[in-house]
């Protein structure tokens, strides 16, 4: 089926099977490598992306439910304050979970405090097997603070 959406600020049109997940559409059709599939069961968060500003697990979100929507992957936030803070805090090792972490931090509403406890709670749906979360959590706290301070 013909699929189309605005992905990371760019209009994407491609053929995608109607029973595909959003992650499959983005990775396959849209050749977007910022969406990783690690578990395929909606538990690890590596495939996180925003659909109309709402965070979803791309691996279990129907591609065509996102038809015509504005979709943001980690590529939308490349080298931004959150990504930079994660890098600086040593929150990036193998990097397979990192794009999903970046998206997760960007999806947080203003009622999530930019504190260690707030971030640990908010990122409980993002698994990482490399860092023990220490650098990730520290980086996410700093990144969220910078984001809220309006840092570009």
């Amino acid at each position: 089926m013909r699929w189309s959406a605005e992905v990371d600020g760019r209009l994407v049109e491609c053929d995608v099977p109607g029973n595909a997940s959003l992650a499959e559409a983005l990775r396959g059709g849209a050749e977007n490598t910022a969406v990783k599939v690690a578990c395929g069961e909606g538990i690890c968060g590596a495939c996180s992306c925003l659909v109309a500003g709402e965070r979803v697990h791309g691996c279990i979100y129907p591609a065509f439910r996102a038809y015509g929507q504005v979709i943001q992957t980690a590529a939308s936030f490349a080298d931004g304050p959150v990504a930079r803070a994660l890098v600086e805090a040593g929150g990036v090792q193998c990097g397979f979970c990192t794009p999903g972490m970046v998206v997760a931090v960007h999806s947080l509403s203003t009622d999530v405090p930019a504190t260690e406890a707030g971030i640990r709670h908010a990122l409980a749906g993002n698994l990482c097997r490399c860092t023990g979360y220490a650098g990730l959590v520290a980086g996410a706290v700093a990144g969220l603070q910078r984001l809220r301070a309006g840092e570009p």
């Binding site: 996180s48 709402e54 979803v56 697990h57 279990i60 709670h121």
Partner: peptide, 8 residues
């Protein structure tokens, strides 16, 4: 909560 799957 707080898993994003809660919204889905």
């Amino acid at each position: 909560e707080p898993l994003p799957v809660a919204a889905q």
